[in-house]
């Protein structure tokens, strides 16, 4: 991974600098100082503030230390439990389908016999770079109960239409479908380039040994893509846990809280109810969940050791 290489290069240079001069050089720190300053101002300090606020009743006007009260409140907050469940469901389906579908599409588009691969890749990748708000507006029209394309197709097939986003049973699946549409192109492009990096001679040797295309895919491609899969797993999991814009635009968390997510609850508590302290505690919990999942994936998913944690 590029960032991993930078990390290693950085370390090597530091070691060389230290060895050659006999003392720690200031230059590398000065080079990274501006970037670190920006990182500290916009990421690190807000993160620390959120942790501090999570132990208070901060509501913009007042702030009192309340210990673990916000965390205790979360345990009894049915809406937060619903949000947690929705977030997990959303993430599970979006991540799983994106990885599987992305790999399949990459494998198909990578075949020599497939004409128009570049065009298809571009088309599939476009949703990923479309603004989530714009994408949400598009899907809002697609799902519209009266003039939506989805209902038109369904009615054309002889079935009756539905108010997809206003039915508690279908609203979340609709958002999941949209999440898949938006993320699959990214997975496909990353898998595509990773597949191209697998040496041809491995497939050639397998063919000589009589391995079928399916066997080659499962015995060569998938194992050699494990670090890519791991990378995509972590990245898509993080972004899916943070899903917000779609929820805000398309359903507002409803109906009956069936589409509210942790990020949406954080927004509601912070900017609608002004319970900044409580919202901060939810943000800390979201951070902890993402961290735990990432660590689990690093422990069990990074068998090759290609990606370093530090």
């Amino acid at each position: 991974m590029p960032w991993m290489l930078i990390n290693n290069y950085g370390r090597s240079e530091m070691q060389i600098t230290k060895r050659s001069s006999g003392r720690r050089s200031l230059s590398p720190y000065l080079y990274i100082a501006p970037a670190f300053f920006v990182y500290a101002v916009f990421i690190l300090i807000p993160l620390l503030c959120a942790i501090v606020f999570s132990f208070t009743n901060y509501n913009i006007q007042n702030m009192k230390f309340t210990g673990l009260a916000n965390y205790a409140r979360m345990l009894g907050d049915a809406k937060f439990h619903q949000a947690l469940l929705n977030t997990l469901l959303y993430s599970f389906f979006v991540v799983a389908v994106n990885l599987v579908l992305g790999l399949l599409l990459a494998a198909i588009l990578g075949q020599r016999w497939f004409k128009g691969s570049a065009f298809c890749r571009s088309v599939l990748y476009i949703p990923y770079i479309v603004s989530p708000i714009a994408a949400s507006m598009i899907w809002l029209y697609l799902y519209d109960s009266k003039v939506g394309v989805v209902n038109m197709v369904i009615k054309g097939l002889g079935f009756s239409g539905k108010s997809w986003l206003l039915d508690e049973k279908t609203a979340l699946p609709c958002l999941i479908v949209m999440g898949i549409w938006q993320g699959v192109g990214y997975c496909m492009v990353v898998y595509f380039s990773a597949l191209k990096n697998i040496p041809d001679y491995l497939y050639e040797a397998a063919r000589i040994d009589g391995a079928s295309a399916v066997t080659q895919f499962f015995k060569i491609s998938i194992p050699l893509l494990s670090s890519t899969t791991f990378f995509l797993l972590v990245m898509t999991m993080i972004s899916s846990f943070q899903v917000f814009a779609q929820i805000m635009v398309m359903t507002g968390g409803g109906p009956l809280s069936s589409t509210t997510t942790i990020a949406h609850q954080i927004y509601e508590n912070a900017f609608v109810k002004y319970s900044m302290g409580y919202a901060s505690s939810q943000a800390v919990v979201l951070f902890a969940i993402v961290l735990i999942f990432t660590l689990i994936f690093f422990k069990y998913g990074n068998k090759e050791g290609d990606v370093e944690l530090d």
């Binding site: 050089s25 200031l26 230059s27 000065l30 100082a33 501006p34 300053f37």
Partner: peptide, 14 residues
């Protein structure tokens, strides 16, 4: 020279 350059650049960016 590198260190001076780094200090100058950092200063300018900040």
């Amino acid at each position: 020279k590198k260190r001076v350059l780094a200090v100058l650049m950092s200063g300018m960016m900040l």
